[in-house]
């Protein structure tokens, strides 16, 4: 996704170092004893995740909701790598603009334009924290649909308690209106917020496949519909 950017080259070089490091460790040690102190912190972190403790420190063979296994979930894509900085610092300005550009490219808009769906469905989706958890208590999507987890971090309608990690969205449509520009902004923020806030902690609900186009329309209706309790 970061092709033609300086970021891609940097990330590729980094990945090569890790790969080479892993091989060197395996080669150097035929006795089965691995020297953690010979690795860089990044090499060791990857080793602990994917190789230590007999196939990795996590249950990587577990199947996941989107298909494939937890191993693939734990492998970082380019954005995740670029935004993983010790002490949660930010990458340099050039990398940040590459992230924004790649985020813009990732966004797929609905045919016929951005539309609002059913705010009542959106209300429950925004409230639900269910979905995509694996490990010891697997979220079975065949029994219950995955939600948007919005209330984990945002306050919306005040009849329910929301988090404060993200900004309050109470009265969102009421205070901002429903122009094409603001609808596009909200759609982009849900689909891939890195387009405006590179390395934000908010998930890429569209680009990561956590929410379908229909669910995004329902959640946006919850934010914008004048009848929605968000806009009371």
């Amino acid at each position: 996704m970061f092709k033609k950017t300086p970021l891609a080259a940097g990330v590729a070089a980094f990945a090569t170092i890790i790969f080479a490091g892993g091989c060197a460790v395996a080669d150097a040690d035929k006795s089965g004893k691995v020297d953690y102190t010979a690795m860089t912190p990044h090499e060791l972190a990857e080793y602990l995740m994917f190789e230590a403790n007999g196939g990795g420190g996590f249950n990587l063979s577990q199947e996941v909701q989107e298909g494939g296994t937890a191993r693939e979930r734990m492998q970082q894509d380019e954005l995740q790598k670029a935004c993983s900085i010790i002490d949660d610092g930010k990458p340099d300005a050039e990398t940040l603009s590459a992230i924004r550009a790649a985020a813009q490219e990732s966004i797929v808009y609905p045919e016929g334009g951005i539309k609002l769906g059913d705010w009542k469905k959106g209300r429950e989706l925004a409230w639900s924290g269910f979905g995509y958890r694996i490990g010891h208590n697997f979220d079975d999507h065949s029994k219950r649909e995955a939600g948007g987890t919005c209330y984990n971090c945002h306050q919306l309608a005040t009849d329910r308690t929301g988090g404060t990690v993200g900004p309050s969205l109470t009265g969102y449509g009421k205070t901002r209106g429903t122009s094409d520009a603001i609808l596009k902004y909200a759609y982009d923020m849900i689909y891939n917020p890195h387009v405006y806030f590179p390395c934000t902690h908010m998930p890429r609900f569209g680009a990561n496949g956590m929410l379908t186009e229909e669910k995004i329309a329902d959640i946006m209706a919850y934010m914008f519909d004048p009848e929605s309790p968000v806009n009371e």
Partner: peptide
Amino acid sequence: DAGEVLFARRAGKADFN
């Protein structure tokens, strides 16, 4: 030091660290 890297390591369905 590896723990420090893991603490900041973003991955998974929701990109969290």
